[in-house]
Computed example of a mutant assay.
Amino acid sequence: MAVCARRLCHIAFHVPPGHLLGRDLQRLFGFQPLAAREADGWRQLALRSGDAVLLVNEGAGPREPLYGLDPCHAVPSAANLCFEVPDVGEAARALAARGCAVQVPPVDVRDARGAATYAVVRSPVARLSLTLLEQRADARGPFLPGFEPVSSAPGPGWVSHVDHLTLACTPGSTPALMRWFQHHLGFCHLPLSPGEDPEVGLEVSAGPGLGGLRLTALQAPPGCTVPTLVFAESLPRSTTGDQDQVEQFLARHGGPGLQHVGLYTPSIVEAAEGVVAAGGRLLTPPDAYYQQPGKERQILDAGHQPHLLARQGILLDGDRDQFLLQVFTKSLFAEDTFFLELIQRQGATGFGQGNIRALWQSVQEQAVRDQKA
Protein backbone atom coordinates (compact mmCIF):
# COMPACT_ATOMS: atom_id res chain seq x y z
CA MET A 1 0.00 0.00 0.00
CA ALA A 2 1.01 3.61 -0.53
CA VAL A 3 2.21 5.70 2.41
CA CYS A 4 -0.56 7.78 4.00
CA ALA A 5 0.38 11.48 4.10
CA ARG A 6 -2.06 12.84 6.69
CA ARG A 7 -1.34 16.54 6.34
CA LEU A 8 1.16 19.08 5.07
CA CYS A 9 3.22 20.16 8.08
CA HIS A 10 5.36 22.83 6.45
CA ILE A 11 7.09 23.99 3.27
CA ALA A 12 10.85 24.51 3.61
CA PHE A 13 12.98 26.98 1.66
CA HIS A 14 16.74 27.02 1.20
CA VAL A 15 18.41 30.44 0.95
CA PRO A 16 22.01 31.66 1.26
CA PRO A 17 23.31 33.45 4.38
CA GLY A 18 21.91 36.94 4.81
CA HIS A 19 18.91 36.38 2.55
CA LEU A 20 15.84 38.40 3.61
CA LEU A 21 13.14 35.81 2.87
CA GLY A 22 12.25 35.31 6.54
CA ARG A 23 11.93 39.05 7.08
CA ASP A 24 9.86 39.49 3.93
CA LEU A 25 7.43 36.71 4.81
CA GLN A 26 6.79 38.45 8.11
CA ARG A 27 6.72 42.11 7.01
CA LEU A 28 5.15 41.82 3.58
CA PHE A 29 2.85 38.81 3.84
CA GLY A 30 1.82 38.78 7.48
CA PHE A 31 3.48 35.55 8.60
CA GLN A 32 4.25 35.33 12.31
CA PRO A 33 7.61 33.93 13.55
CA LEU A 34 7.06 30.76 15.58
CA ALA A 35 10.40 29.21 16.44
CA ALA A 36 14.04 29.35 15.48
CA ARG A 37 17.20 27.24 15.60
CA GLU A 38 20.85 28.12 15.01
CA ALA A 39 23.30 25.21 14.81
CA ASP A 40 25.70 23.42 12.47
CA GLY A 41 26.04 26.45 10.19
CA TRP A 42 22.27 26.84 9.73
CA ARG A 43 19.79 29.45 10.83
CA GLN A 44 16.29 28.00 10.67
CA LEU A 45 13.16 30.11 11.16
CA ALA A 46 9.59 28.79 11.17
CA LEU A 47 6.74 31.20 10.42
CA ARG A 48 2.98 30.73 10.47
CA SER A 49 -0.20 32.31 9.19
CA GLY A 50 -3.28 30.32 10.13
CA ASP A 51 -2.47 26.69 9.32
CA ALA A 52 0.17 27.62 6.73
CA VAL A 53 3.70 27.06 8.08
CA LEU A 54 6.87 28.01 6.18
CA LEU A 55 10.38 27.06 7.27
CA VAL A 56 13.33 29.13 6.05
CA ASN A 57 16.67 27.30 6.14
CA GLU A 58 19.40 29.89 5.76
CA GLY A 59 23.08 29.11 5.23
CA ALA A 60 24.98 25.86 4.79
CA GLY A 61 26.81 23.62 7.18
CA PRO A 62 28.66 20.34 7.64
CA ARG A 63 25.43 18.61 8.63
CA GLU A 64 21.95 18.66 7.12
CA PRO A 65 19.42 21.20 8.47
CA LEU A 66 17.09 19.69 11.04
CA TYR A 67 13.99 18.10 9.41
CA GLY A 68 15.43 18.60 5.96
CA LEU A 69 18.21 18.25 3.48
CA ASP A 70 20.72 20.66 1.99
CA PRO A 71 19.73 20.68 -1.70
CA CYS A 72 23.12 22.11 -2.73
CA HIS A 73 21.22 24.12 -5.29
CA ALA A 74 22.72 27.18 -6.97
CA VAL A 75 19.67 29.42 -6.52
CA PRO A 76 17.29 29.99 -3.57
CA SER A 77 14.25 27.76 -3.83
CA ALA A 78 11.37 26.01 -2.14
CA ALA A 79 13.31 22.83 -1.46
CA ASN A 80 11.19 20.53 0.72
CA LEU A 81 7.64 19.50 1.56
CA CYS A 82 7.06 17.99 5.02
CA PHE A 83 4.16 15.55 5.46
CA GLU A 84 2.90 13.98 8.66
CA VAL A 85 2.69 10.17 8.55
CA PRO A 86 1.47 7.67 11.19
CA ASP A 87 4.80 5.79 11.44
CA VAL A 88 8.00 7.17 9.92
CA GLY A 89 9.95 3.92 10.16
CA GLU A 90 7.24 1.96 8.43
CA ALA A 91 6.77 4.67 5.80
CA ALA A 92 10.50 4.83 5.02
CA ARG A 93 10.68 1.05 4.63
CA ALA A 94 7.59 1.00 2.42
CA LEU A 95 8.94 3.71 0.13
CA ALA A 96 12.36 2.08 -0.06
CA ALA A 97 10.67 -1.18 -1.05
CA ARG A 98 8.98 0.68 -3.91
CA GLY A 99 12.32 1.96 -5.16
CA CYS A 100 12.30 5.39 -3.51
CA ALA A 101 15.67 6.70 -2.28
CA VAL A 102 15.70 7.41 1.47
CA GLN A 103 18.20 10.24 1.73
CA VAL A 104 17.99 10.67 5.52
CA PRO A 105 17.04 7.48 7.45
CA PRO A 106 14.67 7.93 10.42
CA VAL A 107 16.07 10.37 12.99
CA ASP A 108 14.73 10.84 16.52
CA VAL A 109 14.66 14.41 17.90
CA ARG A 110 13.79 15.15 21.52
CA ASP A 111 13.81 18.18 23.81
CA ALA A 112 11.93 19.35 26.92
CA ARG A 113 8.82 20.11 24.83
CA GLY A 114 8.42 16.75 23.15
CA ALA A 115 9.80 14.28 20.63
CA ALA A 116 9.52 13.61 16.91
CA THR A 117 10.92 11.25 14.27
CA TYR A 118 11.56 12.21 10.67
CA ALA A 119 13.07 10.87 7.47
CA VAL A 120 13.80 12.52 4.13
CA VAL A 121 13.13 10.85 0.80
CA ARG A 122 13.86 11.87 -2.77
CA SER A 123 10.86 13.00 -4.81
CA PRO A 124 10.61 12.56 -8.58
CA VAL A 125 11.21 16.32 -8.90
CA ALA A 126 14.97 16.68 -8.73
CA ARG A 127 15.05 19.95 -6.77
CA LEU A 128 12.40 18.93 -4.23
CA SER A 129 12.79 16.50 -1.31
CA LEU A 130 10.02 15.16 0.93
CA THR A 131 10.21 14.93 4.72
CA LEU A 132 8.09 12.34 6.52
CA LEU A 133 7.30 13.42 10.08
CA GLU A 134 5.90 11.61 13.09
CA GLN A 135 5.39 13.89 16.08
CA ARG A 136 4.50 12.52 19.49
CA ALA A 137 1.03 13.38 20.77
CA ASP A 138 2.40 15.00 23.96
CA ALA A 139 4.55 17.58 22.11
CA ARG A 140 4.01 21.03 23.59
CA GLY A 141 6.23 23.36 21.58
CA PRO A 142 4.99 25.93 19.04
CA PHE A 143 6.79 24.13 16.19
CA LEU A 144 9.01 21.03 16.41
CA PRO A 145 11.53 19.62 18.92
CA GLY A 146 14.94 21.23 18.58
CA PHE A 147 13.54 24.71 17.96
CA GLU A 148 13.24 27.52 20.49
CA PRO A 149 10.01 29.58 20.63
CA VAL A 150 10.11 33.10 19.20
CA SER A 151 7.87 35.74 20.70
CA SER A 152 6.19 38.12 18.27
CA ALA A 153 3.11 40.24 17.89
CA PRO A 154 0.03 38.57 16.36
CA GLY A 155 -0.05 38.65 12.57
CA PRO A 156 -2.80 40.24 10.49
CA GLY A 157 -4.33 36.86 9.61
CA TRP A 158 -4.50 37.44 5.85
CA VAL A 159 -3.80 33.76 5.11
CA SER A 160 -5.69 30.82 6.64
CA HIS A 161 -4.08 27.77 4.96
CA VAL A 162 -2.26 26.41 1.92
CA ASP A 163 -4.76 25.90 -0.90
CA HIS A 164 -2.52 24.26 -3.49
CA LEU A 165 1.06 23.60 -4.55
CA THR A 166 2.05 24.06 -8.20
CA LEU A 167 5.02 22.25 -9.71
CA ALA A 168 6.61 23.54 -12.91
CA CYS A 169 7.41 20.52 -15.09
CA THR A 170 9.26 19.86 -18.31
CA PRO A 171 7.08 19.10 -21.35
CA GLY A 172 5.74 15.55 -21.33
CA SER A 173 6.87 14.72 -17.78
CA THR A 174 3.56 15.20 -15.95
CA PRO A 175 2.10 11.68 -16.36
CA ALA A 176 5.18 10.03 -14.82
CA LEU A 177 5.28 12.52 -11.95
CA MET A 178 1.61 11.96 -11.23
CA ARG A 179 2.03 8.19 -11.21
CA TRP A 180 4.84 8.55 -8.66
CA PHE A 181 2.67 10.51 -6.22
CA GLN A 182 -0.23 8.14 -6.78
CA HIS A 183 1.87 5.01 -6.32
CA HIS A 184 3.95 6.21 -3.37
CA LEU A 185 1.70 8.63 -1.44
CA GLY A 186 -1.80 7.56 -2.43
CA PHE A 187 -2.85 10.70 -4.31
CA CYS A 188 -5.64 10.42 -6.88
CA HIS A 189 -6.51 12.36 -10.02
CA LEU A 190 -8.60 15.51 -9.54
CA PRO A 191 -10.29 16.38 -12.84
CA LEU A 192 -10.18 20.05 -13.76
CA SER A 193 -12.71 19.57 -16.56
CA PRO A 194 -15.55 17.07 -17.15
CA GLY A 195 -14.32 13.73 -18.47
CA GLU A 196 -10.69 14.79 -18.29
CA ASP A 197 -8.10 12.19 -19.30
CA PRO A 198 -5.42 12.15 -16.55
CA GLU A 199 -2.77 11.38 -19.17
CA VAL A 200 -3.70 14.58 -21.03
CA GLY A 201 -4.91 16.92 -18.31
CA LEU A 202 -6.52 20.26 -19.01
CA GLU A 203 -4.99 22.09 -21.96
CA VAL A 204 -5.38 25.85 -21.66
CA SER A 205 -4.49 27.16 -25.11
CA ALA A 206 -3.43 30.76 -25.55
CA GLY A 207 -4.46 30.71 -29.19
CA PRO A 208 -3.25 29.24 -32.51
CA GLY A 209 0.52 28.92 -32.41
CA LEU A 210 0.80 30.76 -29.08
CA GLY A 211 1.26 27.76 -26.83
CA GLY A 212 -0.39 27.71 -23.43
CA LEU A 213 -0.39 25.52 -20.33
CA ARG A 214 -1.23 21.93 -19.55
CA LEU A 215 -2.61 21.63 -16.01
CA THR A 216 -3.18 18.36 -14.16
CA ALA A 217 -4.10 18.01 -10.50
CA LEU A 218 -3.92 15.40 -7.75
CA GLN A 219 -5.76 15.34 -4.45
CA ALA A 220 -5.01 13.46 -1.25
CA PRO A 221 -7.21 10.56 -0.07
CA PRO A 222 -10.32 11.37 2.01
CA GLY A 223 -9.54 12.36 5.58
CA CYS A 224 -6.15 13.87 4.74
CA THR A 225 -5.53 17.61 4.90
CA VAL A 226 -2.92 17.82 2.16
CA PRO A 227 -3.24 20.65 -0.41
CA THR A 228 -3.96 19.86 -4.02
CA LEU A 229 -0.90 19.23 -6.16
CA VAL A 230 -1.01 20.97 -9.54
CA PHE A 231 1.38 20.05 -12.35
CA ALA A 232 1.98 22.75 -14.96
CA GLU A 233 3.87 22.35 -18.22
CA SER A 234 4.05 24.44 -21.37
CA LEU A 235 2.21 23.50 -24.55
CA PRO A 236 4.15 23.49 -27.84
CA ARG A 237 3.97 26.66 -29.89
CA SER A 238 4.94 27.57 -33.41
CA THR A 239 5.48 31.28 -32.88
CA THR A 240 8.53 32.88 -31.33
CA GLY A 241 8.32 35.24 -28.41
CA ASP A 242 8.99 35.65 -24.73
CA GLN A 243 9.13 32.61 -22.48
CA ASP A 244 5.93 31.76 -20.65
CA GLN A 245 5.92 31.49 -16.86
CA VAL A 246 6.78 27.76 -16.79
CA GLU A 247 9.58 28.04 -19.35
CA GLN A 248 11.03 30.98 -17.46
CA PHE A 249 10.95 29.08 -14.17
CA LEU A 250 12.67 26.01 -15.64
CA ALA A 251 15.42 28.14 -17.18
CA ARG A 252 16.14 30.32 -14.16
CA HIS A 253 15.59 27.66 -11.50
CA GLY A 254 17.74 25.15 -13.31
CA GLY A 255 15.02 22.54 -13.74
CA PRO A 256 11.60 21.51 -12.39
CA GLY A 257 10.49 22.51 -8.93
CA LEU A 258 7.85 24.14 -6.77
CA GLN A 259 6.89 27.17 -8.81
CA HIS A 260 4.33 28.72 -6.47
CA VAL A 261 2.21 28.15 -3.39
CA GLY A 262 -1.45 29.10 -3.40
CA LEU A 263 -2.36 30.63 -0.04
CA TYR A 264 -6.04 30.77 0.83
CA THR A 265 -7.37 34.07 2.13
CA PRO A 266 -10.90 34.75 3.39
CA SER A 267 -10.70 38.32 2.05
CA ILE A 268 -8.46 38.76 -0.95
CA VAL A 269 -9.11 42.50 -1.29
CA GLU A 270 -8.03 43.11 2.31
CA ALA A 271 -5.03 40.80 1.94
CA ALA A 272 -3.87 42.37 -1.32
CA GLU A 273 -4.23 45.88 0.05
CA GLY A 274 -2.29 44.87 3.16
CA VAL A 275 0.53 43.31 1.16
CA VAL A 276 0.88 46.38 -1.06
CA ALA A 277 0.73 48.76 1.91
CA ALA A 278 3.52 46.75 3.55
CA GLY A 279 5.70 47.09 0.45
CA GLY A 280 4.91 43.79 -1.25
CA ARG A 281 4.80 43.63 -5.04
CA LEU A 282 1.85 42.12 -6.88
CA LEU A 283 1.70 41.30 -10.58
CA THR A 284 -0.60 43.66 -12.45
CA PRO A 285 -2.40 42.31 -15.52
CA PRO A 286 -2.77 44.59 -18.54
CA ASP A 287 -5.78 46.92 -18.60
CA ALA A 288 -7.15 44.82 -21.46
CA TYR A 289 -7.94 42.04 -19.00
CA TYR A 290 -10.57 44.16 -17.25
CA GLN A 291 -11.81 45.58 -20.57
CA GLN A 292 -12.83 42.22 -22.03
CA PRO A 293 -16.45 42.04 -23.16
CA GLY A 294 -18.58 40.93 -20.22
CA LYS A 295 -15.78 41.10 -17.62
CA GLU A 296 -17.25 44.10 -15.77
CA ARG A 297 -20.66 42.38 -15.56
CA GLN A 298 -19.00 39.14 -14.43
CA ILE A 299 -17.25 40.95 -11.58
CA LEU A 300 -20.39 42.86 -10.55
CA ASP A 301 -22.49 39.66 -10.60
CA ALA A 302 -19.97 38.09 -8.23
CA GLY A 303 -20.53 40.95 -5.77
CA HIS A 304 -17.28 42.83 -6.36
CA GLN A 305 -16.31 46.21 -7.75
CA PRO A 306 -14.23 46.17 -10.95
CA HIS A 307 -12.16 49.20 -9.99
CA LEU A 308 -11.20 47.66 -6.63
CA LEU A 309 -10.04 44.43 -8.23
CA ALA A 310 -8.18 46.28 -11.00
CA ARG A 311 -6.40 48.48 -8.46
CA GLN A 312 -4.63 45.46 -6.95
CA GLY A 313 -4.50 43.25 -10.03
CA ILE A 314 -7.02 40.73 -8.67
CA LEU A 315 -8.40 38.29 -11.25
CA LEU A 316 -11.86 36.70 -11.18
CA ASP A 317 -12.90 33.46 -12.86
CA GLY A 318 -16.38 31.88 -12.76
CA ASP A 319 -19.94 33.12 -12.37
CA ARG A 320 -22.08 34.57 -9.59
CA ASP A 321 -22.62 31.16 -7.93
CA GLN A 322 -19.16 29.62 -8.30
CA PHE A 323 -16.08 31.76 -8.74
CA LEU A 324 -12.61 32.33 -7.46
CA LEU A 325 -10.45 35.40 -7.04
CA GLN A 326 -6.68 35.27 -7.32
CA VAL A 327 -3.68 37.57 -7.37
CA PHE A 328 -0.02 36.73 -7.81
CA THR A 329 3.03 38.22 -6.17
CA LYS A 330 6.21 38.98 -8.01
CA SER A 331 9.00 36.53 -7.34
CA LEU A 332 10.34 36.32 -3.82
CA PHE A 333 13.83 35.75 -5.24
CA ALA A 334 16.09 37.83 -7.48
CA GLU A 335 16.21 34.94 -9.95
CA ASP A 336 12.52 35.60 -10.72
CA THR A 337 11.42 32.05 -9.97
CA PHE A 338 9.22 31.18 -6.99
CA PHE A 339 6.19 33.33 -6.13
CA LEU A 340 3.06 33.27 -3.99
CA GLU A 341 -0.58 33.31 -4.99
CA LEU A 342 -3.42 34.63 -2.87
CA ILE A 343 -6.68 32.86 -3.65
CA GLN A 344 -10.25 33.20 -2.39
CA ARG A 345 -12.92 30.68 -3.42
CA GLN A 346 -16.69 30.97 -3.61
CA GLY A 347 -17.66 27.41 -4.49
CA ALA A 348 -15.11 27.11 -7.32
CA THR A 349 -12.71 24.18 -7.26
CA GLY A 350 -10.46 24.96 -10.24
CA PHE A 351 -7.40 27.14 -10.56
CA GLY A 352 -8.45 30.02 -12.76
CA GLN A 353 -8.31 28.27 -16.13
CA GLY A 354 -10.41 31.05 -17.65
CA ASN A 355 -7.97 33.62 -16.31
CA ILE A 356 -5.06 31.93 -18.06
CA ARG A 357 -6.79 32.24 -21.42
CA ALA A 358 -7.98 35.78 -20.69
CA LEU A 359 -4.55 36.95 -19.57
CA TRP A 360 -2.86 35.61 -22.68
CA GLN A 361 -5.49 37.23 -24.86
CA SER A 362 -5.32 40.55 -23.02
CA VAL A 363 -1.52 40.61 -23.26
CA GLN A 364 -1.78 40.14 -27.02
CA GLU A 365 -4.44 42.85 -27.34
CA GLN A 366 -2.38 45.23 -25.24
CA ALA A 367 0.66 44.59 -27.46
CA VAL A 368 -1.43 45.47 -30.55
CA ARG A 369 -2.62 48.70 -28.89
CA ASP A 370 0.94 49.64 -27.97
CA GLN A 371 2.08 49.13 -31.57
CA LYS A 372 -0.69 51.42 -32.86
CA ALA A 373 -0.04 54.12 -30.28
Rank of each mutant, 00 (worst) to 15 (best):
N80L: 11
R7V: 06
F31T: 03
A74P: 05
V88Y: 03
S193Y: 10
P86Y: 15
G207A: 13
S267A: 13
N57I: 00
S129C: 14
A176Y: 03
P76T: 14
V269S: 11
D87I: 00
L213N: 14
V102T: 03
C169F: 02
L324M: 05
L28N: 13
L177R: 13
H183Q: 15
G61C: 07
A232I: 14
F29M: 12
R110K: 05
V204T: 10
H304S: 07
A310R: 08
M1I: 12
A36R: 05
T228F: 04
H183P: 11
V150Y: 03
Q298W: 06
L45P: 09
L165I: 09
S362T: 11
S123H: 09
C188Y: 08
L28I: 01
A119Q: 03
G303N: 13
A101L: 13
L340D: 03
A168V: 04
Q26N: 15
R93T: 09
Q346F: 13
G68P: 15
E196I: 09
A91H: 00
C100Y: 03
G172D: 15
R369V: 12
T265V: 13
E199R: 13
V269H: 01
E58P: 11
L185N: 03
R237C: 08
G350M: 12
G59C: 01
P175V: 15
G172E: 02
V56C: 14
D319S: 06
E296V: 15
R357M: 10
R281F: 14
L359C: 05
Q326Y: 00
G141Y: 08
P62W: 05
D40T: 02
A358H: 08
Q103S: 14
H307T: 07
V159G: 08
D111N: 10
V269F: 02
A278P: 00
A12H: 13
D317N: 07
L332D: 10
H307K: 05
V204W: 02
Q292T: 08
S234R: 05
G68H: 00
A112Q: 08
H14Y: 04
G274V: 00
A232T: 05
H307S: 10
G114Q: 04
P306V: 06
T117W: 12
R369Q: 15
A153E: 02
I356H: 07
A348P: 06
P221E: 09
F29S: 03
G146H: 05
P86G: 06
D163F: 07
G50K: 02
E233L: 11
I11A: 15
A94G: 02
K372V: 10
Q344T: 01
H183R: 14
V120H: 01
D108K: 08
V102L: 06
S77R: 13
G347I: 00
V107W: 14
A334C: 10
L359N: 02
A94P: 04
P175Y: 15
I343H: 00
T131P: 01
L192I: 15
H183K: 14
A137R: 03
P293C: 05
Q361T: 13
R136T: 04
S234L: 10
